[in-house]
C-alpha cells in the first residue's frame, strides 16, 4: 500500500533537555520525488516544442487534454481512496505529456481523455500509486487506446510544416513495412515526417535526454544500451535480409525508439534496480523492438517491447541481486556459514 507517513524517528524527547532526537543518519541529500519529476518535465520541453512546431494546434490541444486529465484523475483516485494527495509531485504531468506525445496529431480529444484516465487510474493508482505500478502508465494508456481505437490511433497526417493539407499519410515505419519505402535519416532527425506527435523529432528528444543525464537522473547504460541493442539486432537483420529490412540507423531514428530510450526505458519505477538487471532489461527490449518491427504484424514495436520487459522486472531484480561485499562463493551448492 502506498504510504506517506510522518517520520516517527524524529521527535522531541520529553524527559530530556528538549533537544530533538532522531535515528541516524541525520544528513540527507536534497533529492526529492518532486525535484526528479520536475526535471523530467523540463527535459520533455524540447520534444513538446517540436510537437507544437510540427503539428500546431492539434499538439497543444492534445498535450493540455492529457496533462489536465491525468492530474484530475490522480486527484480523484487519491481522494476517493483517502490517500494523501500528491498531484503536485510531477509524476502525473509526465504521464500526461508522454501519452500525448505518443498519440497521432489527429487523435480525438475524448480518446485522449479516456487514455489518460486509463493510464493514471489503471496504470498507476490501482497498483497503489507512484512506485507500486508494474507498467509504465503512459505506455499502458497508449496500449489501451491501441486496442480500443485501432484505426484512429494509426491514422496519421503530415506535419503542418510541409504546407500541404494531406488528410492522412503513413509513418516512416509503416511506409517501410508495408511499401518498402525508406525515409531519409535527415527527415527522421529533425522530425519532418508523419508520426506520433512527440516521436518524430529525434533531436528534440535527445536534447531532453542529455539534459537528464547531465542532471544525473539517468544512467547512460539504459538509453544507450537500448538503442545499441536495437542497432545491433537491426544490423544483423539488415545484413542477412537482402534489402528486406531497414538499416540500423533507421531503426533508431524512426518511430518511438528515441522517446522510449530516453524517457520510458529510463522510468525508474518500472525498470530494474540492479546494474546487471538494467543491462538485461535494455538488451532484451531492444531485441524485441527489432523482432516485432521486422517479423511481427505491426510496424512499431517500442511500446510492446517496454511493456513486456516491465512485466519481467521483478524477476530480473531477483536474478541479478548483486553479490554482497565479501560474499563467499557457494560451496557444494550450499551456502557457507
Amino acid at each position: 500500500m502506498a504510504e506517506e507517513v510522518k517520520n516517527d524517528g524524529f521527535l522531541a524527547d520529553k524527559d530530556g533537555a528538549g533537544l530533538i532526537v532522531s535515528s541516524s543518519p541525520h544528513l540527507f541529500n536534497t533529492e526529492s520525488i518532486p525535484k526528479i519529476m520536475h526535471t523530467v518535465v523540463m527535459a520533455l520541453i524540447p520534444a513538446m516544442i517540436a510537437a507544437i512546431y510540427y503539428f500546431r494546434l492539434d499538439a497543444v490541444v492534445l498535450l493540455v487534454t492529457c496533462i489536465v486529465t491525468s492530474l484530475i484523475t490522480e486527484f480523484i483516485f487519491q481522494k476517493a481512496r483517502k490517500q494523501p494527495v500528491t498531484v503536485y509531485d510531477g509524476s502525473a504531468i509526465i504521464t500526461g505529456i508522454l501519452l500525448a506525445l505518443m498519440l497521432p496529431p489527429s487523435f480525438p480529444i475524448y480518446g485522449a481523455i479516456i487514455g489518460s484516465v486509463f493510464a493514471i487510474g489503471v496504470g498507476k493508482q490501482i497498483f497503489g500509486g507512484l512506485g507500486y505500478n508494474i507498467f509504465n502508465p503512459a505506455l499502458l494508456g497508449r496500449a489501451f487506446l491501441q486496442a480500443t481505437y485501432p484505426v484512429m490511433i494509426t491514422t496519421w497526417h503530415e506535419p503542418a510544416t510541409k504546407g500541404v493539407d494531406v488528410v492522412s499519410a503513413a509513418t516512416p515505419l509503416a511506409l517501410m513495412k508495408f511499401e518498402g519505402i525508406s525515409t531519409g535519416w535527415g527527415s527522421l532527425l529533425i522530425g519532418n515526417t508523419s508520426g506520433s506527435m512527440g516521436e518524430t523529432c529525434a533531436i528534440a528528444i535527445l536534447i531532453g535526454g542529455l539534459y537528464l543525464f547531465y542532471k544525473g537522473y539517468i544512467d547512460l547504460r539504459m538509453p544507450l544500451g537500448y538503442l545499441g541493442s536495437i542497432a545491433v539486432f537491426g544490423l544483423l537483420f539488415w545484413l542477412g535480409g537482402d534489402g528486406k529490412y531497414p538499416d540500423p540507423v533507421f531503426h533508431i531514428l524512426a518511430g518511438g525508439a528515441m522517446l522510449g530510450a530516453w524517457f520510458m526505458i529510463t522510468d525508474m519505477v518500472t525498470s530494474p534496480v540492479t546494474p546487471k538487471g538494467q543491462w538485461i532489461f535494455v538488451i532484451v527490449a531492444g531485441f524485441l523492438v527489432v523482432a516485432i518491427r521486422n517479423l511481427g504484424g505491426l510496424p512499431e514495436g517500442v511500446m510492446y517491447s517496454i511493456l513486456l520487459m516491465n512485466a519481467a522486472v521483478p524477476l530480473i531484480n531477483r536474478w541479478t541481486r548483486p553479490k554482497v561485499f565479501g560474499e563467499q562463493p557457494k560451496k557444494n551448492g550450499k551456502e557457507k556459514g
Partner: peptide, 22 residues
C-alpha cells in the same frame, strides 16, 4: 536535519548504487 515525511519507493536504485556493502 529534519527528514521530510517519507513516500513510497520509486525504485530509483539510488540506494543500491550507494550501498558500499552491495
Amino acid at each position: 536535519v529534519k527528514p521530510a515525511d517519507y513516500f513510497g519507493c520509486i525504485r530509483c536504485a539510488s540506494c543500491v548504487d550507494a550501498c558500499p556493502m552491495r
